[in-house]
Computed example of a mutant assay.
Amino acid sequence: MKKDASTWISSGLVLLVFLMLWQWGPVVLGMPEYVFPQFTRVVQEAGHMWSNSDLLGHFWITTLEVILGFVLGSLLGIFFGVVLGLSPKTESVLSPYILALQIAPKVAFAPLFVMWLGYTIYPKVLVAILIVFFPVMINVLSAVRTVDPDMVNLVRTLNAGRFQIFRLVEFRSAMPSLFSGLRIAATLAVIGVTVGELVGGNKGLGYLLVDAEGQGNTAGVFVAIAGLTLVGLLAYWAVVWLERRVLHYIPRANVTTV
């Protein structure tokens, strides 16, 4: 659903108030720059990092890592969600191990991946895959398990084979839940990549964040955080855009619009 003019104006006013508080709040509260820099100081630092620290290059490296981690983690989640959803016995066998993998703190894996794979793109992508995998898998598994049996029986009476039942009924029924999982996964992928870059990165926005923190450059930390937030927003909006085109057949009242 498209936002009307009043919604856009209201959103713009909220942003304006936020920026005004950011600009003059530290001055009113007497906060030194190294604690909470003003908005204009952060903008100046962003320009400096753009010119001298290759901010755009680091931004695209992080974006690439997020895309790879999100896509690969989502594909694994879809695959295991479908397999476990269609085979309760397989779920009984594998679910303890999948649950253990989910419970294990992902931050703890990042140093291990760096030790194995070095300061490359692969540790960051692997951490993102681990974080993305579970929400996608759970959503798909639950959706496949709750398919209307009457619809399955109806298609079966039309002499549909097992793959046709899956393609026409089970997978289509799982699509709304799948995209709900993908929305969550899009933001979690940024967290996974950031953790990897913080632990063992020599490129990317996470690396810039650590570098700025080491220099006591609070404005630079804010720039890196803003860049990571932008990457997350772009990933989320991409999923929303795709959802609206894939699920165009579902009434708008049943499709979330955030």
Rank of each mutant, 00 (worst) to 15 (best):
L16I: 15
N217Y: 01
N52Y: 15
G25Y: 04
V127L: 11
L75K: 00
V83T: 14
A128F: 03
A46D: 04
V169F: 05
V223N: 02
V221C: 09
V193L: 08
M1H: 10
I138Y: 04
F109E: 04
L15C: 11
G69S: 10
I191V: 15
G214H: 12
A238H: 02
R245N: 15
L126S: 12
P111E: 05
L64G: 09
V246P: 07
S6P: 02
I103R: 05
V83C: 15
A5L: 13
G25S: 08
W60Y: 13
Y34M: 14
L101T: 14
V35D: 07
P176S: 03
W24Q: 02
R172L: 12
V14R: 05
D150G: 12
L208F: 00
Y34N: 15
I61L: 10
G181Y: 02
S11V: 10
G57Q: 06
A46Q: 05
R172E: 13
G214I: 10
R162L: 12
M31Y: 13
L208C: 03
L112A: 08
A5Q: 09
F134M: 00
I225L: 13
Y207P: 06
V221T: 05
P105V: 06
L154K: 09
A174V: 12
F163Q: 10
T157H: 05
Y249A: 10
Y207D: 06
Q23M: 10
L126K: 03
P88E: 05
K106E: 08
G227H: 01
L21R: 02
H58Y: 03
G206I: 01
S92M: 14
D211N: 15
S87P: 02
A186G: 10
S142T: 12
Q164Y: 08
S11G: 07
W22P: 02
L228V: 06
W237S: 09
F70L: 15
E197C: 12
L16S: 14
I165T: 07
N159F: 06
F133I: 04
E197I: 12
G25R: 03
L182W: 00
V136L: 02
L228P: 01
V136E: 01
M49G: 03
F39A: 12
V114R: 01
R145L: 04
N254R: 14
I225W: 05
H58M: 04
T229H: 11
L76E: 02
V125M: 09
V152R: 10
V35W: 09
T157G: 00
N254A: 12
P111C: 05
V140H: 02
G204L: 08
G204D: 08
V93Q: 08
Q215E: 11
V190T: 12
F59K: 07
L99C: 07
P251T: 11
R183V: 04
F59M: 11
